[in-house]
Amino acid sequence: MSEDQKKKFTSDEEYQKATRRDFMKKLGIIGGAAVAGSAALVAGMKFEDKKGKDGYIRAVNDDNELITVPKSEIKYLKPDFTELQRRGREGLKGRKWVMVINLAKCRNARKCVEACQSAHHLRPYEYHINTLKMQDGKETAPYYMPKPCQHCDNPPCTAVCPVNATFKRQDGIVLIDNERCIGCRFCIAACPYSARMFHWEQPKNHEEYMHHEEEYEELMHHGKINEAAELKAKIDYDIELNVPQKKGTISKCLFSADRLREGKMPYCVSACPNGVFYFGDENEDAVTNGTTKETVRLSKLLRDNAGYRLLPELGTQPRVYYLPPKNRLFDFPEESILPEDGHHS
């Protein structure tokens, strides 16, 4: 609210009311994003205005009273569960994420796999992305192929989900909500790329989370609301990271939706030492290499290098493109990985 606007109000009281209204409108727009709390205040207190006296900030506490808080006392908390769910289902407006994988550069370092598994709390044999040894025919050369979820524009997995637990967002990401999933595994059956995994047992750091839950109860019990709130934010389910993982639900590659929101590239893309991955926004016609950070035109990259997509005959229209393994930088250890009959088993 500007100074001019302020002049229109006759009394401070009216001004307060107006700012309150203004604030409520803002709340409506940001959908009740709970963002802050100070050491003295209960988490869930909402900021009203970033202006105010120097070093102070105006905010609304849980009792809907306008208060001022010293800036030094402010702690920014992670958005709460409801907000995470809302923005996670909505996605980033105006974006169309796209990944390009240059097969000529992959040497099976598996750094992408490791980074992904560490970010999403997965065991070594639980994959969101896996590097596969591929060979198309006996006379053609074998090559390595990183295979994340293809984030199809015509996703077969999403079509069969009975409860809208897996869904496509406006920015193209196919996400999974493990607070919703009933564990029927129809999506696994429907996915032609074997991109999905299931938590057959308690996920990797289940015990750690159980411990945090207990700690949370303890803190609440002793009235340490601030510490409790902080811990809660840590253990709340983040749909864009799919952590904590849950027993009996599906998990899959998310294009690191949580990182994209912060302007960072996915975990796997950033971790690759060999410049295999490009990631970017199709709307901007640009992708950036995760290793060299070089940004190139997507259309030119695909045109010049004969980019292609996996199993195009299925009409799934993936958002992941591959550049053929031409002039590979690394030799494959074996001459052929196919058995005598010429088929992958």
């Binding site: 596969l132 040894k133 790329y193 074997s194």
Partner: peptide, 8 residues
Amino acid sequence: PNLPIQGV
């Protein structure tokens, strides 16, 4: 499946 089963 369409793609080979590896690393499991």
